[in-house]
Computed example of a mutant assay.
Amino acid sequence: MIKPSLSTMDHAMTILASRDHSTKEMAHKLKIKGHEEESIAKAIASLLEVNYLNDRRFAESYTRSRANKPLGPQRIKQELKQKGIKDDVISQVFEESDADWFELARELKQRKFGEEVTKDFKERAKQTRYLQYRGFGFEHIKYALEPNQD
């Protein structure tokens, strides 16, 4: 294993300088840099204590960022779980989120396929699969594929 040139805490601060990270991400990145498990645990505990590392703040920021892509709630929740965010934190973040998932699904459909509502079964199935892949649920997809009610 390579001996790291910086202390664990210095590496952690360097990593956090670019963007927020989850606790799991931070531990993984520090481990890759060659730091010992014990020093990683101490650094993470210190960062949590001074609120430099905060999974809830990370989840809120990540959700906003991914919703702006736009990606749907199901995909974002799955990505947050992979990043080590607990289910209760994810639930709280989504309850407090001001994202309109229905409008985001419609906006994505219109950007990719145009505003015209298709009657063709194959084209509709293609649009449905695309929106599902992006993480939208069936209610969001149904809304996105219906004609505008303006």
Rank of each mutant, 00 (worst) to 15 (best):
K3M: 11
S5H: 04
T8C: 11
M9N: 02
H11P: 08
A12P: 10
M13L: 13
T14D: 15
I15S: 03
A17Y: 00
D20M: 15
K24N: 06
M26I: 12
K29G: 01
I32V: 08
I32Q: 07
G34F: 00
K42Y: 07
A43H: 09
L47W: 00
E49H: 05
R57Q: 06
A59S: 04
E60R: 15
S61P: 01
T63S: 14
S65G: 02
R66C: 07
N68Q: 15
N68F: 14
P70I: 13
G72Y: 07
E79M: 11
L80D: 08
K81C: 12
Q82D: 05
G84M: 03
G84Q: 04
I85E: 07
K86T: 05
D88H: 09
V89K: 09
I90H: 02
S91R: 15
Q92E: 13
V93C: 09
E95Q: 11
D98Y: 13
A99E: 11
F102R: 04
F102H: 08
K109H: 12
Q110I: 02
K112V: 09
K119Y: 06
F121R: 15
K126F: 01
R129Y: 07
L131N: 05
G135C: 10
K142C: 00
A144K: 00
A144Y: 00
L145N: 11
L145R: 04
P147Y: 04
N148G: 05
Q149F: 09
